[in-house]
């Protein structure tokens, strides 16, 4: 249990650092930045205390907000994603997900892909709707959601493959 906690803290710091130092400065086509830091929420252990995940996600988002001067946009999106994560598990892996041990960071199966995709899409949609915050910009927000979702999806899958546990 203690090692899981330590592992998650390391993952938290590593993902934030990678996000701030590398991924926030990519600016593909002048406006697309991937947000693979939400992998923290996706990879958080499945059968653990939920309040821990909620608090961790909130602070994950808040840290991002501090770095990008975005008010509370990231915090809100991360928090909501953490809250509805069990529903996405049920949607992607079927009802009995709690009894089998789900590992997200493993070979890419259709179930895992569905889960990662739907989570990223939800998070980005919330993020950009809150960030743009005006009806005038709703098309920009949707456009950016689509572009960034594809980008984040690619980067996230790459990161999962790179850091896959090498046991077996």
């Amino acid at each position: 249990m203690n090692s899981t906690l330590l592992f998650n803290i390391i993952r938290f710091v590593f993902l934030i650092a990678a996000q701030v130092i590398i991924f926030n400065n990519i600016n593909l086509f002048g406006f697309l930045n991937p947000y693979p830091y939400i992998l923290f929420i996706l990879l958080y252990p499945v059968n653990t205390n939920k309040s821990g995940l909620l608090i961790a996600s909130f602070f994950l988002g808040l840290t991002m907000d501090i770095f990008s001067n975005s008010g509370g946009v990231h915090a809100t999106a991360c928090l909501i994603l953490a809250q509805i994560r069990p529903a996405f598990f049920r949607f992607a892996f079927g009802l009995s997900y709690e009894y089998q041990t789900i590992k997200i960071n493993d070979r890419l199966s259709p179930e895992r892909f569905t889960f990662i995709f739907i989570s990223i899409l939800t998070h980005h949609l919330l993020l950009f709707l809150l960030e743009f915050f005006k009806f005038d910009f709703i098309l920009d927000a949707l456009l950016r959601t689509i572009g960034t979702t594809v980008f984040t999806l690619l980067v996230s899958i790459l990161i999962i493959y790179l850091f896959k546990p090498t046991k077996k």
Partner: peptide
């Protein structure tokens, strides 16, 4: 937590010098 974060969002969008969370730290 949701109320806290939504308050921060609305506040930061509403008027000048209203950002509580910012990178000047």
């Amino acid at each position: 937590l949701l109320i806290t974060s939504l308050t921060l969002v609305v506040q930061s969008h509403s008027y000048h010098r209203s950002q509580v969370v910012n990178s000047a730290n």
